[in-house]
Amino acid sequence: MTIRAEDLIDRRRLRRKLTFWRVAALAVAAAGVLALALWFYREDMGGSAVDHIAKVKIEGTITEDEELIGRLEKIRESKSVKGVILTIDSPGGTTAGGESIYDEVRKLAGDKPVVAQVGTLAASAGYMIASAADHIVARKSSIVGSIGVLIQFPDVTGLMEKVGVKLEEVKSSPLKAEPSPFNPTTDEERDMVRKLILDSYDWFVGIVAERRSMTRPQVLALADGSIFTGRQALTNKLIDAVGGEQEAIDWLATKGVDEKLKVVEWKNTESRGGFLFSKALTQTIAKALGLPEYSGDLARELGMDRLFLDGLVSVWHP
């Protein structure tokens, strides 16, 4: 059968049209998949475009955490976030670290309702951060409190004598670089350190009194380093209610936040620990040690991060 030139041209035109629409359909599908992936990725990052309640986990040893502070600032600036739940499970940490996060939470609470939900533990700097929220919820068996500040330093002079090591030093004044683990502590050094501790302790007591609407004598009666169960903390007005996340959501509802909104966790997306503590490696080691396989930071799981706390610390067990 002979194909006319006109038919051949028509077929070629049809093929070009079909090719164009196939490519266009594939492009649209790819764009849709990409948009969906980005949406899920954005949601996983905590940056959901729809209205939601933001959840931030504050766990482990407290230090000055620029990533966390930046995350709280983004939450404050997000128009999609209608309320915030701080999930706290921490024994405390450095006093300066607790202060920096406390200040950022107060800024956040100036724009959005913030509730702290205590898990197992919110002690010392962990409780300091919880007190920055507008409302605190804890389990009946949670551990709360340990209001106070300390400095600890070893005395290795006995060990030095046994191994035959002697320290020689020349310094500008007697209190320079003191107290030192290489010299017995003098009364003057203890007095200097005590003044340092009491100044930060005074500040800590002051913010608890302010945030919990208590008198200073009331706080001082509790701020002897004691820890309390959630039920005891409620009686002592250190928390506002017992319960968990649902009770936190219920309180947000009293502040005009729709209780049906989805709770979206804003996660830490920065890698931590470098090559030695990479996620894949730490998961393998954690499994061998019997630790949770989801561990992303082996040092924190082992408690090693507390070994390197320096300066004033507000922590239950250093």
Rank of each mutant, 00 (worst) to 15 (best):
E6P: 10
R12L: 15
R16N: 14
W21V: 12
R22M: 15
L26Y: 13
A30W: 05
L38H: 10
M45N: 07
V50W: 13
D51Y: 08
H52E: 00
T61P: 07
R71I: 15
I88L: 15
S90E: 00
T95Q: 08
S100W: 04
I101D: 07
L108F: 00
A109C: 05
V115F: 00
A116W: 01
L121P: 05
A122G: 14
M128Y: 03
M128V: 02
A130R: 02
D134N: 13
D134S: 12
R139G: 12
V144M: 10
S146L: 04
G148Y: 04
I151A: 03
M160C: 01
M160T: 03
V163D: 01
V165H: 03
L167D: 06
E168F: 07
N183A: 06
P184T: 10
R190Q: 04
L196A: 07
L196M: 09
L198C: 11
D199A: 12
S200W: 04
V205K: 08
G206I: 08
G206E: 00
T215F: 07
P217R: 05
V219G: 09
T229N: 05
N236C: 08
D240G: 13
D250S: 12
K255Y: 04
G256D: 00
K260Q: 12
K260N: 13
W266G: 07
L276P: 06
A280L: 08
T282N: 11
A288R: 14
L289N: 02
G290P: 11
L291T: 11
L291G: 02
L291V: 04
Y294K: 13
G303S: 11
M304L: 15
R306C: 08
V315Y: 00
P318W: 14
